[in-house]
Design a protein around this nucleic acid. Structure first.
Length: 328
DNA sequence: AATGCGGGGAG
DNA sequence: CTCCCAGCATT
């Protein structure tokens, strides 16, 4: 660890970072579990959005042991609202794996084998918590490198190679965070502050930074669904949600399409009774990344067994539906 | 290589 | 409204 080993390029960024870095909760300490949690929370999530969940999660699950011993449903309840619920399921599974064989792995290759830890998160934890010289390439770093190199459509392999080439191996955790911090603040997607950038003299894309990297083509398709809120003295009928992302959460009975009939048939069969004629309670719109969902919300009086929606982990969509039916 | 997955903030 | 964020798993 010698500052004199740094290239002028590396020195400029690290100097800038030490002077301008934001004081974030997980930067105040070196507990690997807390660093791991922060990195998982930050997957596709802005810093400001992740911070409240970071505190809430640690208050309930201060260490890997307490997390591994908890019920998945409670983990999801604490995660509720943060989105990408597979992250919580994977973190819970990770805690159970690690608790059986105590220490958290301390290198990239073994971290990479754990559920929910992909190339970015494994590299971030390995470098920040364990000082392993491996480059962490997230969306920020992708943009920073693309602009410095004037690359419009870089491949992940090219980005990783360039990131490794530039990595300040003496302080990899700090270097990785500096690259991300630059991308999150000055080298922003729109209106980058090139005049303040410590790397401007090395930047090939500075004349037209917004060209790099080229924006991704997307398509949004509209989908329709119907939901039925069965409410009565014992609460609301909730079903376990299926699927990788929403699995483990609960929700009101729903079906694709615009017709209520198939849903009514399914519910009548599963409950062994006919459903009282539903009344239309309104429409709920919900935006997913590649889909715009329009849900027709119906509700019926229901005297049978039900759940207390306050005690179940629900997605934001289901909370919207319950509010629309005035059941939350 | 393409797709699905949440939620929210900025322009 | 669109874009995209400290991505990952699956196909």
């Amino acid at each position: 660890m010698k500052g004199s080993d740094l290239t002028p390029f590396q020195h400029s960024l690290l100097e800038w970072y030490r002077a301008h870095r934001r004081a974030l909760p997980w930067r105040e300490e070196r507990d690997p579990y807390r660093i791991l949690l922060s990195e998982v929370l930050l997957q596709q999530t802005r810093v400001d959005q992740a911070i409240p969940y970071y505190h809430r999660f640690l208050e309930r699950f201060p260490d890997l042991r307490s997390l591994g011993e908890a019920d998945l449903e409670e983990v999801l309840r604490v995660w509720q609202g943060a989105g990408y619920y597979a992250r919580a399921r994977n973190l819970h599974k990770l805690a159970q794996i690690v608790s059986a064989e105590p220490p958290l792995p301390t290198n990239y290759a073994r971290l990479r084998e754990l559920p929910g830890l992909g190339p970015y998160t494994a590299a971030a934890v390995a470098s920040i918590a364990f000082d392993e010289p491996v480059a962490a390439v997230d969306g920020n770093v992708r943009r920073v490198i693309s602009r410095l190199m004037a690359w419009e459509n870089p491949t992940p392999a090219a980005l990783q190679a360039k990131a490794e080439e530039w990595l300040a191996a003496e302080s990899p955790g700090e270097w990785n965070q500096a690259m991300m911090e630059l991308g999150a603040t000055l080298c922003a997607p729109r209106k980058p502050a090139c005049r303040s950038c410590p790397l401007a003299r090395w930047c090939a894309g500075q004349a037209s930074p917004e060209r790099y990297p080229a924006p991704r083509a997307r398509q949004q398709r509209a989908t329709e669904a119907v939901a039925l809120v069965l409410q009565g003295p014992y609460g609301v009928v909730l079903e376990p949600r299926q699927g990788r992302s929403l699995g483990g959460l609960w929700g009101v009975p729903m079906a694709e399409g615009r017709s209520l009939e198939p849903l009514l048939r399914r519910l009548a069969a599963s409950h062994g009774t006919t459903i009282p004629t539903p009344e239309h309670a309104g429409t709920v719109q919900h935006a997913f990344t590649h889909r715009r969902l329009t849900v027709q919300v119906y509700k019926s009086r229901w005297e049978g067994p039900a759940h207390d929606p306050q005690s179940k982990p629900l997605s934001q969509l289901d909370r919207k539906i319950l509010r629309q039916a005035q059941a939350l």
